[in-house]
Design a protein around this nucleic acid. Structure first.
Length: 278
DNA sequence: CTCCAGGTTCCGG
DNA sequence: CCGGAACATGGA
């Protein structure tokens, strides 16, 4: 068994926080582990105290990278504004990391996320992987990598609708095609500043400001990105702007961009999780 | 049955 | 810039 030190890290909390949607709990061997795929590599992980335990050799670097074990958590927490609403959310979110996911997989998954509950997003992710992804075996279990843009570009809208995507099928297909044709280069976006990167992502069908911000936050390590979904908007209006009438979305965006600071994405994720679980 | 979910896009003020 | 409406699906 290999072990990676992981302080200020909570595996279960991180995987339950609505960033990645394909990990499954694995109780085999009386454990409390998780089975999933990092890129093309199958992994079984289990947290024991401040250690991340796994069996497969050569997985340490991808695991450390995916779970962003290098994030400066003390600095991040110290950067948060001293506001009671965020501090309350932080209490239940200690150890939750913003992941560093593969870019295409993250973007594609969030294209399917619009107007869907987290459990539905998970179902669609597994359906897409099972239907189009490369199988990778892990012991007795068969897992699936997320299919490449080229593979999905070769699919039909009907096949994608069979994965319960509904109207999202057209968007995912259109985006896969644009990327497969090189019209948008997801790797090149990594070298752009936040605004340029967001604008470039928004050229893709089904990608608006919210989905772009999710990709920037969960895959491009832009920790200032602050996706505003229905949950966050509710928190903002009910807690931060209570007793104020007619608050426009632009007002909310401007407030968030300033108030939550350089690691606003972390603050956003904690507020999101707290709102969703209480 | 009704309500709602990690939205985007298009259209008329 | 702002508010409305259409767009699919399934769990609560």
């Amino acid at each position: 068994m290999k072990k990676i030190p992981a302080t200020d890290f909570d595996l279960a909390l991180t995987l339950a926080s609505g960033q990645a949607f394909h990990w499954v709990a694995d109780r085999s061997a009386g454990g409390n582990g998780y089975l999933g795929v990092i890129g093309e590599q199958p992994v079984r992980l289990e947290q024991k105290g401040d250690l991340l335990v796994f069996a497969t050799p050569g997985r340490e670097a991808p695991i450390r990278n995916y779970f962003a074990l290098d994030h400066p958590m003390a600095e991040i927490y110290a950067s948060f504004p001293d506001d009671p609403i965020l501090q309350e959310a932080c209490r239940g979110c200690r150890g939750m990391r913003i992941l560093r996911q593969p870019k295409w997989e993250c973007l594609a998954t969030f294209i399917t996320s619009s107007m869907k509950q987290v459990t539905h997003i998970s179902q669609m992710s597994h359906a897409i992987r099972g239907k189009f992804g490369s199988p990778v075996s892990f012991g007795e279990d068969l897992l699936y990598a997320y299919p490449s843009p080229e593979r999905l570009a070769a699919a039909t809208e009907e096949e994608l609708r069979d994965c319960k995507l509904g109207y999202r099928a057209k968007n995912l297909l259109g985006t896969a095609r644009m990327i497969a044709e090189g019209i948008v280069d997801l790797e090149a976006i990594a070298n752009m500043d936040d605004d340029a990167a967001r604008a470039e992502l928004c050229r893709l069908p089904g990608v608006g400001e919210k989905v772009a911000n999710c990709a920037l936050l969960f895959a491009y390590e832009r920790l200032r990105s602050f996706p505003i979904d229905v949950w966050i908007e509710r928190v903002l209006r009910e807690r931060y702007f209570s007793r104020k009438r007619k608050v426009t979305v632009k007002r909310l965006k401007d407030f968030c961009a300033d108030h939550f600071g350089p690691y606003g994405g972390y603050a956003q994720q904690y507020l999101f999780h707290h709102a969703r679980t209480s």
